[in-house]
Design a protein around this nucleic acid. Structure first.
Lengths: 212, 212
DNA sequence: ATATTTCTTGCACAGTGTGCAAAATTTGGC
DNA sequence: GCCAAATTTTGCACACTGTGCAAGAAATAT
């Protein structure tokens, strides 16, 4: 495992302990992704990931519960970013508009190619798919919490969870659709995904009345 | 494993082979459910399930890929029923109405108590949760297929998958909400769930405009 | 009754996930 | 700089998972 030593960053008081953990996590995630690309999802072992990351098998399990979880750091960071983007929307803004804006903004920023890859990989690997679904589920719970807090008890739990679930389903649908004809990336990936996100969420906003 | 021999059913030409497999599957699923109830989800082994079902460990794996999958036969049969109910809706009917009707009808028929249990169990067992999410995902794919076929290419893939995903999210939200204050069942469970299904899907139909 | 197909079982084997205690590393006080 | 405390890594043991394979058992066809 190689530690990145360049460009000292005294801005944050991050001790070597913390930094080492971050590096280790990254190294493991990268190793997993590389193996998934070369050998195919689900066709490699934890030992191989650990070896490639320069870490013991046991240490791997200190960071992740399974090989698939290590592949999902990208997905999780995407959702993480979307959540924080949403929580920074103006307070008075209509819910759906805030969510559309947050997701669209996140789609622009992120390193998207990896997400397309992961979506496609998941199609052929049940374990990976389950892990991804789980990641989305955890994000959903957090968003529900955020929205509930944002609405200050002004809506029923059913309303909130149905809404958030629907929004995320649309986002997922957009990513699937985008990932599907992705293989040969042409033009701006961020724009293409953002467009689909907005499109799907607009459909949601008018109750799927028009089979566009 | 006990085979049910009573009430001969000469109506369907179901050979003993087929019948045995059905019985075995049932026996395993029941054994798993019983163990989940007594020892808690995720706190028992495949060997225990197999033993209780009167089957070898190896045979268990001929029927299910994991202990959690054995717990999900209820969930799968629920979704199975919903799908077949949907596919029997009149052809001209608006999509959302057809889906609302199908899900509501299914909510009435099914043995609901078990689903509430499973939803609550999943909250404390990541493996079970993943398996449930996976079951819903598979159902979603099948429904997307059915709807696509039903629409005869009259809608974009994005539209269909966003719609179906949203509908299922609402159904899931309804079941969660229903399962949450379920512990002491009061009155008609089917009616209570159906009401929430219709409510959530109505919200969806008008684009979540009113935070009811 | 017997040949054939299908299902069950035991066994082997590679891999998973976790508790535990002994190194190894980082941190903080002196 | 040096030592003690806190934290992280690692090896090891162990129970359990999931699957291929071949032999045995049961159902079906002839």
């Amino acid at each position: 495992m190689q530690r990145v030593e360049d460009a000292a960053e005294p801005l944050e008081p991050v001790g070597r302990r913390e930094q080492n953990k971050i590096d280790t996590r990254r190294a493991i995630a990268e190793a997993a992704l590389t193996l998934a690309r070369t050998k195919g999802a689900g066709s490699f072992t934890v030992d191989q990931i650990a070896a490639r990351a320069g870490v013991s098998r046991r240490t791997f399990f200190n960071y992740f519960h399974s090989a698939e979880e290590a592949l999902n750091v990208s997905t999780e960071s995407f959702l993480e970013l979307a959540i924080s983007s949403f929580s920074r929307r103006p307070a008075g803004e209509p819910l759906l508009d805030a969510m559309i804006a947050a997701l669209a903004a996140t789609a622009k920023v992120q390193d998207l190619a990896v997400h397309g890859e992961l979506f496609r990989m998941a199609a052929g690997s049940p374990e990976l798919l389950r892990a991804q679904l789980h990641a989305w589920e955890r994000a959903e719970a957090r968003i529900i919490e955020a929205v509930t807090h944002h609405l200050q008890g002004g809506a029923s739990p059913l309303y909130v969870s149905a809404l958030v679930g629907s929004v995320l389903s649309c986002a997922k649908a957009a990513m699937h659709d985008w990932a599907a004809d992705d293989p040969d990336r042409h033009g701006d990936a961020g724009a293409a995904l953002e467009e689909r996100m907005v499109l799907a969420l607009s459909m949601l906003r008018d109750g799927f009345a028009h089979p566009a």
